[in-house]
Structure formats: structure tokens, C-alpha cells
């Protein structure tokens, strides 16, 4: 294994890949101080451990990583080790530039072959994930190795191949994340977690793909499981939560109906009004009037 570092703007190898901010492999044979300082970066950073054992700090939390583990550092998150210590061992990494939308969502970028909705779902998954360490994830190591080989090999089609591999890396990381947090045993717990995420991001225009990806199932199986567990299709369940939250907000005099509609994820106050009336028999404004009145 050869050590190397390629950086955007410095290394000719990366000229065709503006989204590849840094690629490298490091083998460290003795402990060094002040060589692995804490930094934050714009892109997403993915590290795969080849040998040894490292104690790293991600977003102020300490983690020990072992061979086969992957550390995922999101844009703007601090990453490094205490006193800049670099322990003995080897690892390989990639820093990937990522498109940040105005609403805070992240997307892979134009180079990616992922469809827009899938790209958004992956971005959402990455930003919602609570554990930055993915364990026993050899697949990631293989993909990084392949990217390195293609970067130096320059064989025909290498540009497309590298971008494919990067897509594959994002896909595998996302799938591994959901499988790690949802081992497929406890649907009530998984559904509860999904519920929490939906509630905390109620204004987001959730798609079934995104929800399914969050629990690590394909959309067909996901829809089936949700239906048999909750009695509702995923979208109808979401509407259920939206209206329930809207009712609570309507009982407070200080928020406009339009704001309530948007906060709870309806496209418009018209859309809100129609859905609300269909279910409850009242228009939101009528409902509000009835409930603010002293009985």
C-alpha cells in the first residue's frame, strides 16, 4: 500500500473531478504529536481504517475506530484527535464536495448519476444519522481502493468509473447506516424513530423513498410494513401527524393559518384547508373560532 495525498487545486490527477476535494492513504509507523489537528471542512469526509486503532474526536465526541470501520464526518463538523496525536496504523480517505441548498439540505452534486429525489434522500439520511461510525464495512474500503486505482491508472472510461464509484460509496454508506441502526428486528421501535424524525421535520416535503430509506427498506416492503403496523399508508400516516399538529397550533391564537399550513408540511393554505375540512368537517378558520371561544 502506497501513501499519497491528492488535493483539489494542487494535484493534476483531480482536474476532472472538481467535487473530489482530497483523496489519500496514510500509513503511520510511530506515534506522532501535532500531526492530526482538529479541523472543520466544507465537504463530507469519509475515512476507512485499514490497520491499527485510532482514537478520534468527531463533533466533540470521542470514538475509537478499528480496521474495517468507517468514520463519516459531515460538512461543518469538527474532526481530529486530542493534541493532534496520530496513532500507529493505516487508513484511507476521501473528501467529497457537496452541494448545500438554501434550505440546508445537502445534495451530491451534478457529477452524480443519482436522480434528484434519491440524491436528496441520501443527503437527508446522512444529515439525520446520529452515529458517525459505521462498523464492519469492508465494502467501503474496496470502493476507495478502486477509486485510487482508477485515478492513477487513467484507463479508458476512468472518469465515469470514478463517479460511479463515488455514487456507490454514498449509496453503500447510507444503506449501511440504516442497517446498523435498524437491524430489522423491532419494527415498533423503528417506526417510533421514524415518527420522531417526521415530527421534527414536519415542514419537509417527505417522499415515500426518503421515509423508506430512513428505515433501510425498499419502498414496497416499507409501505407494506407500515400499512400492516399502523393501518395507514406512509403518506396517510404523515397526513395524520400533520393534521394532529395543526390542530394544536390552531388552538393557539398567535400563529396565522398560512404559517400553520407551511409549518406542518402542506403546500399551501388552500391544500391545508381542503385536507383539514375533508377529515374534520371544519375549515381551519372555523375550527379555530370554535376552540378559542370560551365555552
Amino acid at each position: 500500500m502506497n501513501q499519497f495525498v491528492l488535493q483539489h487545486g494542487k494535484s493534476a490527477e483531480l482536474r476532472l473531478f472538481p467535487h473530489l476535494l482530497e483523496v489519500g492513504t496514510k500509513k503511520n509507523v510511530s506515534i506522532h504529536l501535532n500531526t492530526f489537528p482538529t479541523t472543520t471542512a466544507e465537504g463530507i469526509r469519509i475515512y476507512y481504517i485499514i490497520e491499527g486503532k485510532f482514537e478520534w474526536r468527531i463533533d466533540h465526541q470521542s470514538y475509537v475506530v478499528y480496521p474495517g470501520d468507517v468514520a463519516i464526518v459531515l460538512p461543518g463538523i469538527s474532526f481530529g484527535s486530542d493534541n493532534g496525536v496520530l496513532e500507529i496504523g493505516a487508513f484511507t480517505w476521501v473528501h467529497l464536495g457537496i452541494q448545500k441548498m438554501e434550505n440546508g439540505h445537502i445534495l451530491p452534486g451534478k457529477w452524480s448519476g443519482l436522480s434528484e429525489s434519491e440524491g436528496a434522500a441520501i443527503g437527508k439520511m446522512l444529515s439525520l444519522n446520529s452515529s458517525p461510525i459505521l462498523s464492519r464495512f469492508d465494502e467501503a474500503g474496496k470502493i476507495l481502493k478502486c477509486i485510487h486505482a482508477e485515478l492513477f491508472g487513467h484507463e479508458i472510461g476512468y472518469q465515469a468509473r470514478i463517479n460511479h464509484q463515488l455514487d456507490d460509496l454514498l449509496i453503500q454508506v447510507t444503506r449501511h447506516m440504516t442497517r446498523q441502526s435498524h437491524p430489522g428486528r423491532d419494527f415498533p421501535k423503528t417506526f417510533m424513530r421514524l415518527e420522531e424524525v417526521l415530527r421534527e421535520n414536519l415542514s419537509h416535503q417527505w417522499t415515500v423513498e426518503e421515509m423508506a430509506a430512513l428505515v433501510g427498506l425498499g419502498t414496497t416492503l416499507f409501505t407494506e410494513r407500515v400499512k400492516s403496523y399502523s393501518g395507514f399508508s406512509p403518506i396517510n400516516y404523515l397526513i395524520n401527524i400533520r393534521i394532529s399538529e395543526a390542530i394544536k397550533l390552531l388552538k393557539r391564537p398567535d400563529i396565522s393559518v398560512t404559517d400553520i399550513a407551511l409549518d406542518t408540511g402542506f403546500y399551501s393554505s388552500q391544500h391545508f384547508s381542503t385536507t383539514f375540512k375533508k377529515l374534520t368537517g371544519y375549515r381551519p378558520s372555523e375550527f379555530r373560532k370554535n376552540h378559542l371561544r370560551n365555552i
Binding site: F191, M192, E195, Y229, S230, G231, F232, Y237, N240, I241, I243, S244, E245, I247, K248, L279, T280
Partner: peptide, 25 residues
């Protein structure tokens, strides 16, 4: 037909349900 509504455990020993969601369900 059936419809699920969640139970929230926001603190240890607490077990709560949202009356509005039960009503809408």
C-alpha cells in the same frame, strides 16, 4: 379497520399519548 397512535416516553416513567392524534386517527 385499525389505526396506530404512538406512545411517548419523554422522561423515565412517563408514558403519554397525544389526544389530538387519537382524535384525528
Amino acid at each position: 379497520m385499525k389505526g396506530y397512535y404512538p406512545t411517548f416516553h419523554t422522561e423515565p416513567d412517563h408514558s403519554e399519548q397525544d389526544p389530538e392524534q387519537i382524535f384525528i386517527t
